[in-house]
């Protein structure tokens, strides 16, 4: 064994076609500073070419590699092995919850991406308004209209962790609701509020804040859903007093 290396067992969820799923163990020698995704990619490269998993950027900008690691949603490309197990330990890897499984660790993102599109989720936002309103600005603003890729990387981990998404598949879900809140705060487009002011929208959330707990990208979906509720109520009251024309 190379000095400083660990022996860990990757216990991986396997499923192909209509066959029943099972768990398969892959013992691996790893550097504990490697990321979980490195281990999974090595299993594919050297042990089992039939293993399927989603991945692309390997540094948390694309959102493709969200999986359950020891039961918790993790972006596997930035999760060091050291953070989830110990020498001689096990790493159980499963596909995200609340998504249809296509094969092994690959889930179907079609519905999720459709909802993000319907929520008018922004892809690129002005740097000055790109962080949460309660966060300090990252560094002094030079007043130029800089833009940057949005925080939400559409990994689906918030939907996987959401106890409501588990029971109600028609629920719009934390990612789409958070996107609606952000787009509304930047555009003031009132029609967005009517999209979410419904039983499968902001009112379905039970304030469990599981989404915020697993978000790898500072989106804070739970805060955004609560904020969106405030905006919906404000809009309703304004309508009562005919202040919204």
């Amino acid at each position: 064994m190379t000095e400083g290396h660990w022996h860990v067992t990757f216990c991986i969820y396997r499923k192909k076609g209509d066959q029943p799923p099972f768990y398969q163990d892959f013992p691996l020698e790893v550097d504990p500073d490697e990321y979980v995704l490195d281990g999974i990619e090595r299993i594919w490269a050297f042990h089992d070419r039939s293993l399927t998993f989603r991945h692309a950027c390997h540094h948390s900008t694309c959102g493709a590699c969200g999986m359950l690691v020891n039961g918790v949603e993790k972006l596997t490309c930035i999760t060091p092995i050291r953070a989830v197990t110990k020498n001689g330990g096990t790493i159980r890897v499963e596909p995200l919850r609340n998504f249809p499984v296509l094969s092994d660790l690959v889930v179907d993102m079609a519905e999720f991406y459709l909802r993000m599109e319907q929520a008018h989720a922004l892809q690129v936002v002005p740097v000055a308004q790109s962080t949460l309103p309660y966060e300090p600005p990252p560094f002094p603003d030079d007043g130029l209209p800089h833009q940057r890729l949005n925080d939400c990387i559409e990994c689906g981990m918030c939907v996987s962790a959401c106890p409501i998404a588990l029971t109600a598949s028609s629920y719009q879900g934390p990612a789409a609701l958070a996107a609606t809140q952000q787009t509304y705060s930047l555009t003031g487009e009132k029609s967005l509020l009517s999209l979410v002011d419904c039983a499968d929208g902001v009112w379905r959330c039970h304030s469990g804040f599981e989404c915020t707990a697993v978000c790898p990208s500072n989106v804070d979906p739970a805060w955004r859903i609560m904020e969106l509720r405030r905006q919906v109520i404000r809009h309703r009251i304004q309508r009562i007093f005919h202040q919204d024309r």
């Binding site: 399927t52 989603r54 991945h55 692309a56 390997h58 900008t61 694309c62 493709a64 690959v106």
Partner: peptide, 14 residues
């Protein structure tokens, strides 16, 4: 054989 951009493209510097 993999997801879109799961080789060099996905891991490009950007």
């Amino acid at each position: 054989r993999g997801e879109i951009a799961s080789g060099t493209s996905g891991r490009t510097h950007g």
